[in-house]
Nucleic acid binder design. Structure first.
Length: 209
DNA sequence: GGAGCGATGTCCT
DNA sequence: GGACATCGCTCCG
């Protein structure tokens, strides 16, 4: 904004409130496109624009972790909205979700791709890849973006993402909502035809084709 | 540039 | 014991 430059590069940002997530994931998903995921990493700020997400529902969605009922692992999905659900997959990768719908009703949004905005050198460091390697591969894919933001289950699962007191939250920086496209979800075998993937039209950081 | 596949930890049956 | 909301490396065209 105007005046003195801020280290983060962001001026007026508004953290998305809990009510934003207290809705069906099929409404929350497209509304998250264009919003900004922010991590306070020590004195540094990591920020990236959300360009690809997927909705995961409850009992009616066989691909959703919540479809098997509440367990120790997926409990966050059954809790109140606006909390981070982080799980470990394929022995190598973490994936970040945010819970939706009121306490007792499961649902969430998986973050699949981001467009880096600030703290890019730190993201490369966290990914453990060369600083001059392809920027598109930095945060394009759920495992990649989690690594770039230093997200782990121990550190972040169950964290409130609706407050500045948290070191991981989502904000609106005033960018106009982008045009959204809806497609089938990626990388699943069950319920693979449900149109629950939301992407920013034409954005080069979107994963897949 | 695309298909094939191994690595690897955790959870649930 | 098998499945898994992935990634990056091969090998082939």
């Amino acid at each position: 904004m105007s005046g003195g430059a801020k280290k983060s590069g962001f001026g007026h940002v508004v953290v998305l409130p809990r009510a934003f997530y207290d809705r069906d994931p099929r409404l929350v998903g497209p509304d998250l496109l264009g919003k900004v995921l922010i991590r306070r990493e020590g004195r540094r700020t990591l920020a990236a624009r959300i360009v690809e997400v997927e909705a995961y529902l409850g009992a009616d969605d066989p691909a959703a972790h919540a479809s098997i009922g509440k367990t120790a692992r997926n409990a966050v999905l059954f809790g109140p909205p606006g909390f981070a659900y982080v799980y470990f997959i394929y022995g190598n990768h973490y994936c970040l979700n945010v819970s939706c719908l009121p306490d007792g009703t499961p649902g969430g949004i998986l973050f699949r791709a981001l467009e880096p905005l600030a703290g890019i050198p730190e993201m490369y460091k966290l990914r453990g890849i060369e600083t001059d390697s392809d920027l598109r591969k930095l945060t394009s894919g759920p495992g990649r973006l989690a690594a770039a933001f230093g997200i782990t289950r121990d550190r972040d699962n169950g964290k409130d993402m609706t407050t500045l007191r948290s070191d991981l939250y989502i904000a609106d920086d005033g960018t106009l909502p982008p045009q959204a496209l809806i497609t089938k979800r990626i990388g699943i075998t069950k319920a693979a035809d449900m149109p629950l993937r939301y992407i920013v039209a034409g954005n080069r950081f979107v994963s897949g084709r």
